[in-house]
Design a protein around this nucleic acid. Structure first.
Lengths: 336, 336
DNA sequence: CTGAAAGCGCTTACAG
DNA sequence: CTGAAAGCGCTTACAG
């Protein structure tokens, strides 16, 4: 049943040629006669021959692999990894995914180990690292940290990230909303900070009232608690939640207090989760093109490998999806 | 800034010893004097020396790595991979994650390539493969397909998988429900088939009425469509949905038709998604211990690597979480 | 206690 | 057109 692993030597023996000839034939290099070529190919086929990549890597000093490192999983990273993987393959690399966790120091150390292990030609990190990490890696093994998920406050990331918050507040104000609440993400996250700043700036610029910024942990409970702690006269108001799960918590809180959504409480999410369109009311949210984010990040690594400049000034990855959870405020004075 | 990659030769030169001595010291083998040991260790530290794993693998014929192969991502695989990774590390292996897609033939071929590449000591597949794949791999590279997600109908997997369906129907019947509907998953999935069989058998055994089994694609739309196509006199009924997303679609469908949940329509999900507790009503569902599933699968691979028997007869991985979406049927005759 | 040497399976200049 | 040989960086018997 089981096949023993064949080496190029085995193939050479079966084909009656030198081992180096096998190597030439399979690499498509050298000048080998068509007959020999065919004999070798058949022998290789018959033995299910496949080059030992460890040996090849040692000889060529090229592994053809890059590592993609992730920390705590961002909400459904599959699409992002698919994009990165496709970009890697397009450039002639295979991508492995590795998970690291612990403090930023631990993660940085672990990434350096990967870079020094000789297993990878480059490392793309989707988790923040110490700035020094990119410099401590071996000369020929670039380490690139994806800006998309960086903990630092890059100007580009900041603006791109927060622009939907501005659009949300402006649109809701145009619908007639004057009172807002923001259930923010934890302030360790650059994206959470950027959105909070954008929220406060926009509310002030438009002369609106903010009932506050509540810091949450991206959980449904955070949204629920935020609503339950509001005064009875809070509605009508508009809530900018840090993600869809928080927004669902907000909706439940509203239901518990007898406030209607979207009339008494309009709410926006972030992430475009699968359930969004099927909630009642369906949820207004932000869709992020994760596959494109992955592709862009990998292209940065490939540019570093080729010692080229990385592409710049690309369009934002986010799109707003308007649904039923955002509407003009209900006229509460007209109520029974 | 950048450090060139150091080899054991570099360390030996710096420490003033033979290259083989470096190897002995770092492996903790051989009998090396404490002084030499210390000199070598310091030199290695100073140069950030780290053994080239490709070279080590070639010499030892051991890579210390196993591959975990996934197809289309199961709903949030992170916990499962974390469990598998922990089990691998506990057994002295590093785990890489690779994604494969395409037909079952393509995937099987790709997995065999991995097994023959010399990069991995074993392969654990979380995606179904052709039965022959496990036999065509090299003698010393076991390929194990995780039963948890197998497409084939294993007796064990079948029973374990479907038991919550039995419990759902029994419990709902005890609450007074007599009319049921099942929105099933696609019949290519073993789990979908097992649940459908369990549903039909239980409904019949208890003398209940089934309004049918609708085959869906795990989407919210499937749940929505199933409800919209029911006759006006369908309620009160209980819907067994194939997952939480489908269940949310069912809830939206009920809202559109003016049917209350859980009074007119009780509904159960599957997966214990994050949003479940915050929906209105909150969703009764099935929680699967994904980390344990990953651990068990990896233990099977490790058992194969050690040529030991795999553990058997383990308790099920599922727990039912009862919430608000399941309740006694409303008395519709008493309605306005 | 330490070092010289073989060899893992490959690729690639080089000699025939 | 083909083959013998070196060497990638390691580990490990073996000789001193």
């Amino acid at each position: 049943m089981h096949a023993p692993r064949a080496t190029s030597r085995d193939v050479a023996r079966l084909a009656g040629v030198a081992q180096s000839t096998v190597s030439y034939v399979l690499a498509g290099k050298g000048s080998i006669s068509p007959e020999t070529r065919e004999r070798v190919r058949q022998a290789a086929e018959q033995l299910h021959y496949q080059p030992n990549l460890a040996a090849r890597a040692m000889r060529t000093r090229r592994t053809g692999r890059v590592a993609a490192v992730m920390g705590l999983p961002t909400y459904n990273p599959a699409a992002m990894l698919a994009g990165a993987s496709a970009a890697a393959q397009g450039a002639g690399y295979l991508m492995d995914v590795l998970h690291v966790d612990g403090s930023i120091e631990t993660r940085s150390e672990r990434v350096l180990e990967l870079a020094r292990s000789g297993q990878f030609e480059g490392v793309l990190s989707f988790t923040p690292l110490q700035p020094a990490a990119e410099d401590l890696a071996p000369t020929d093994v670039p380490v690139v940290v994806s800006e998309t998920f960086d903990d630092e406050m890059h100007a580009a990331g900041e603006l791109v990230d927060a622009s939907p918050v501005v659009a949300f507040v402006e649109h809701l104000a145009a619908l007639g909303h004057a009172r807002f609440l923001h259930v923010a993400g934890p302030s360790q996250y650059a994206s959470a900070v950027a959105r909070r700043i954008a929220y406060l700036a926009t509310v002030e610029r438009l002369g609106l009232t903010s009932l506050g910024v509540v810091e949450g942990d991206w959980s449904g409970q955070a949204g629920l608690d935020a609503i339950l702690s509001l005064p009875e006269d809070a509605p009508p108001l508009a809530v900018i939640a840090s993600n869809d799960l928080v927004a669902v918590g907000v909706m439940r809180g509203a239901a518990q207090r007898g406030w209607s959504v979207p009339g008494d409480v309009s709410v926006t999410g972030w992430d475009n989760a699968d359930v969004g369109p099927y909630l009642t009311p369906s949820l207004t949210t932000v869709d992020t093109d994760r596959a494109e984010a992955g592709r862009r990040a990998m292209r940065q690594l490939v540019a570093a490998l080729r010692q080229e400049a990385a592409p710049h000034g690309l369009p934002p990855l986010t799109t707003i999806v308007w649904r039923e959870s955002t509407a003009p405020p209900a006229d509460r004075t007209a109520r029974p």
